[in-house]
Amino acid sequence: MDLPPLSQQQLAAIVTSASTPAELYRTLSDYEAEACLLSSQDSNQAELLSLYYSTFFFSHLLTDQIYEARISTKRMPQGLLQHDPSLQNCLNLLRAVWQRKYEQVYQVLRELPWSDPLKPIVQSYEAYFQEKTLKEISKAYEAIRPAAAATYLGLDPVTAAQADSTTVQKLTAYGWTWDQETGLLHPKPVVEDPQKDDRLYNELSEVMALIGNRRS
């Protein structure tokens, strides 16, 4: 029940031990009250707060809670948010994700300076964002130019525009087809695994039993 005290080591342990992004988000949520009691005026605590809030911010993004991620930035100590480089990077990332500016998203993730403890979660988010975008463009586009696909997926659009074989190979590896004549890629919709909702079947059986009881 009692959580170990919040510290940089504890945060690193939480990030490495969480088996799913949802678990990471839940554990970090439980620490928000403790973080709220720390002072951003104290330099040691400010460093811990910066790491905590940045990690918590990424846990929102990894669980696709964009609105909540935005709201969480309003709950952070506003002085810290304005001056801390990591939190400023988070704000830039949020703006890019919110506005669906794909180039900027990859730019922020790859080019802005992230502190060492944050690098693993930044890389996890980049992989997550790329995979999510791939699923979305597979559903949204029937045919797409390689340069556009490259922009969405954080690949080099200039080489992709020249139908560079490496880029095309990367995209066809996802099951897309390449029409050399038209110079267009045809994405293959990604079908989600439907075997995840046994719980729903059980609940439905309960509903049917309930209706049965009412009739008798």
Binding site: E136, K139, E142, A148
Partner: peptide, 30 residues
């Protein structure tokens, strides 16, 4: 296209986009 693609990709609009061959940067919305 950016606006429409965002709507389609977020699932708010049920449509698909097709980049056209040989018409500059033309895009068709189905």
């Amino acid at each position: 296209e950016e606006f429409v693609a965002a709507l389609v990709m977020s699932g708010s609009l049920r449509a698909t986009l097709v980049h056209l061959h040989g018409r500059g940067n033309g895009t068709m919305l189905h």
